[in-house]
Structure formats: C-alpha cells, structure tokens
Amino acid sequence: MTLSKRASETPFLGLLAATAASLVLALQVIFLKAPTEATMGIVQKIFYFHVPAAYGMYLGAFVCFLGSAAYLARGTAGSDALARAGAEVAVTMGLMVLITGPLWAAKAWGRYWTWDPRLTTSLLSVLVYVAYVVLRAFTGDGEAERKFAAALGVLGAANIPIIHYAVKKWGGQHPQVISNGGGGLRHPDMKLALTLGFLTFTLLALALVWQRMRLHLLVGRVDALEQEAVELGLAGDG
C-alpha cells in the first residue's frame, strides 16, 4: 500500500474505528447496564438495535434520494455511486428491521408477522430498494439504466414519511414508545442504550455508504481503463 493511498484511507479507517468503539460500548450498556423490561423481558433488548436499524434504513434511503436527484440534475458518476451505495445500505438495514421485528413480535404479540400499516409500508419500502439494487446489478451500467434507477431512487423515498406516520394515521399495533406521544423509556440506562444504538447505526450506515461508494467508483475506473485498453488495441482478457 502506497503512502498516499494509506493517507486517503485514514478518514475511512477512523470512521470504522469509531463505529467499532461505539458498537462495543452499546453492547456493554444494552446487556450489562440497561434493565430488563417489565412486561416483555429480555426480548425487549432487540428494540435497542431494531429502531436504530430502521433509522439507518431511512438514512440509506435519504442518501439514495440525494444521489439520485443529483444524478438527474448533473449526471456525474459520483452521484450515481452515492445513490447506489445508499440503496444498498437501505436494503441491508431494512433486512435487519424485517428480521429483528418479527423475532420481537413472536414473543410480544404471539406471532411473527401481521399486516399492520407500519410493517406493511416498511416491507414495501425495502422491496423498492431491493428492486433498485437488482436493477443495477442485472441491467448493465448505461446512461438509460442509471437514469431509470435514479427516478426509482427519488420516487422510492416518498414511502419513507408514509412508514414514519403510518401508526399515527392508520393505527395498528406497532409500539410507539419514543414518538407520537408514547410513554418513553422509563429508565435512564434504557435511554442511554437507545442513544448508543442510534450512534452506532449512524456511524455504521455512514461507513457502509462510504465503502460501497468507493467500490462503485472503483468499478467505474476499471471500466474506463478497460475501454482505454480496447482503444489501444490491447486484448480484452477480462
């Protein structure tokens, strides 16, 4: 690794280190400090990562929206890579939400899934970003595909406020502990655990967006060099 390359990676490595430190601290507070919830027992501790993962999904969706809008406006490779990275993070975080939520519900509601408004809109939103990722993975990397994906990235973000306000607008049984007039977390260590969960998932989402964006930019550079190699008459050996 050259010196300049190492220097360019220092901020990313710093972000990774901060994410790891925050994760260790969050796990320590969640499992060793925060008390067990009175009604649900230990399974409530899923909440400390389930809610921040949902927030991470919102962040990914927002990044995808920003990148997509910027691509439609300016058409740069950087904004396209940002949109793609955001969609991938939204899918990853969305899967976390859709796996951990039903595991909590199995205990709290006695069933894994119900067609509650917030659950249903969350599933739809994750499917929108899965569609985005699949589209980019299997349809090539041309201008038309990029523009189509950017439009999907902009329109897909419209579902995020719907998820957020679904419980308020349409009721349902999804808990509203920290929003919409919920009673909140009744112990300071519960609040600390959730705060650290949010910090960890913010850093994690940023680190993942950064890594995926670098990857997509690298793919673009390799494609450009391959094109140049072909123009120079070098054998395109893949």
Binding site: A38, P175, Q176, G183
Partner: peptide, 13 residues
C-alpha cells in the same frame, strides 16, 4: 403496553 417500557424489579426471564 404499546406506549412505554418500564424496568422490571428482579423479574424472571
């Protein structure tokens, strides 16, 4: 039950 979480006092898990 759906709007607040409270800490248990020595409950069993």
């Amino acid at each position: 039950r759906t709007t607040e979480f409270r800490a248990v006092e020595g409950g069993n898990e």
